[in-house]
């Protein structure tokens, strides 16, 4: 079986996979990182989003082999070693942006990429558009949008409020 070598949450791994093994299967089944979820089989729901080399990627839509040499961050890798939450995690909690929690890992990973890629500020409309690839059945998105907007100043080190 082919081997794939990659870094996940700062740790180097070398794993045997089948050619058809998906990145999400590698994470969940080989590395026991079950925080990344699978919610669909058509690349619609975004429950599986992780960061590959800093970019949000649907890990159900990428072969494990394609991650050769990549730096992958999953939801488990976000909080600091002392347990301090990432500002996005903290804002999700503060604004009640999760209910059942199933979509949450993917939402948080997408949201971080979204805020990072909008250094000039972000509008509610841009946030809603940016969540196009992530489904949540519980919250109606209202509080997710609020949480993401609230994370912008924290992540960009600004005290000014993000655009409403």
């Amino acid at each position: 079986m082919p081997q794939v070598s990659l870094t996940v949450n700062g740790k180097q791994h070398s794993v045997e996979v089948e050619g058809r093994t998906l990145l999400v299967e590698l994470l969940r089944e080989k590395l026991a990182l079950t925080g990344t979820h699978v919610g669909c089989d058509t690349s619609q729901c975004g429950a599986c989003v992780v960061h590959v080399n800093g970019m949000a990627v649907k890990s159900c839509t990428m072969l494990a082999m394609q991650a050769e040499g990549a730096k992958v961050t999953t939801i488990e890798g976000l909080a600091a070693a002392d347990g301090t939450l990432h500002p996005m995690q903290e804002m999700f909690r503060e604004h009640h942006a999760l209910q059942c929690g199933f979509c949450t890992p993917g939402m948080v990973m997408t949201a971080i990429d979204l805020i990072q890629s909008h250094p000039q500020g972000i509008t509610e409309e841009q946030i809603r558009d940016g969540l196009e690839g992530n489904l949540c059945r519980c919250t109606g998105y209202h509080n997710i949008v609020k949480a993401i907007a609230a994370a912008w100043p924290l992540m960009h080190g600004k005290t000014a409020q993000a655009a409403e």
Binding site: R28, T34, G35, H37, I75, E76, E94, H96, F102, T104
Partner: peptide
């Protein structure tokens, strides 16, 4: 009150059946 369960869900530590 902010939810007690959120800490585990937000860190990918939920324990769903498929996990």
């Amino acid at each position: 009150v902010r939810r007690k369960e959120d800490r585990r869900f937000l860190r990918g530590q939920g324990n769903y059946t498929d996990d």
